[in-house]
Design a protein around this nucleic acid. Sequence first.
DNA 1: CAAATTGAAATTGTTGACAATTTCAATTTG
DNA 2: CAAATTGAAATTGTCAACAATTTCAATTTG
Lengths: 202, 202
Amino acid sequence: MTEHQVQTKYTREKICNILRSDLIAGKFNHDQPMREISLAKRFGVSRGPIRDAFLKLTQEGSLVYETNRGVRVHSAIADEERKIMMNMRLDLEKYCISKYIDEADQKDHGELEVLLEQFKSACLRDSLPAVAESDLALHRHWVTRVSKNLEPIWLGLAVRILMKYSRLENIEESIGEHERIVEAIVVKNKERALQALASNLI
Amino acid sequence: MTEHQVQTKYTREKICNILRSDLIAGKFNHDQPMREISLAKRFGVSRGPIRDAFLKLTQEGSLVYETNRGVRVHSAIADEERKIMMNMRLDLEKYCISKYIDEADQKDHGELEVLLEQFKSACLRDSLPAVAESDLALHRHWVTRVSKNLEPIWLGLAVRILMKYSRLENIEESIGEHERIVEAIVVKNKERALQALASNLI
DNA sequence: CAAATTGAAATTGTTGACAATTTCAATTTG
DNA sequence: CAAATTGAAATTGTCAACAATTTCAATTTG
């Protein structure tokens, strides 16, 4: 169980990303308190970077903060709220993909293909945290490329939506949807891309 | 210029709220770096709580963070992005107000009236930070009352949208719009409330 | 003299110590 | 015996010191 290979130091960014995908993957229970000290030990850092990560995840909505009581995992969201968020996310990503198709160059397309491969590989390995992380990374690609302003809003939506439905079901379907999105983007077919996105996000 | 009255200690929450309304009010220039040390001195605390506030404001989008370079004020957003955000915010608040009308009790209505008065008072005082803060507080009321999950998403949108258009123009119009929203809510007229909201947010 | 290099000052990143608060089981009280 | 009280343990909040990094003006180099 111990790590024998050399591990680069964990920064607050890395810790935040790791905790986020763990949370999305359901590794912690809803309402479970997250303790600074135990996580500081786990990552081999002091409490400072852990607190930094907690703050970020709190703002994104996966954690809930209470004064002098620390943070706990957020409760599951209601179906109705999820629907509202899903619609907002769909609107946002439609805008981004449409613009991405206009603006992206060869290099972007290359990155896109890499991210798709990583997603497919995670699916085949059946690793829920890896699937969650690579799914996020793929969608994040076209959002970030189009607008740094929209990215944090998108992330907040995506994290909360994923937190509820993150079982390893319909993996085959999900792979197909993402393949269709990427393919349509590469051949610059907006209509097909937006349609594939909608079927992935509804 | 010095403070003579007793000032309760600044916590990261208070600092965050103060900086947010300052940012919305345009007290800092776009792309201007925010220094931890100078703000720590201003609030009479160590750098820790300032860093906490920076992280939160970064996630909300008013500040931009770069490794080893700290945070700076975000650049203004493009009109096109603002339109996307405005639509998302409108959808979100429509849902919240509609649900708020169903669920709110007498006490909620009382708070609503208080917040409206504070907004009007800030407008009459011509204080841009106070206007920005009380405008946010009013809208936040019906969002938070309906869903703790949607609140941080809403805040991210509201902060970014306000950052661009926060001059003291059309104050009379804005007062009237907010009065119409609150009045329609109190008499539980959804149609009128949503219509008033739309004219406020478009 | 333009471009590269150096180094001190400024700034951010991380840590461990201590203060303040909360929690919860053991004890006291009516 | 139920309810209130106490106090130690656990946990979060804040701080000041030090490490690592960036910045930028002064110096060197071709």
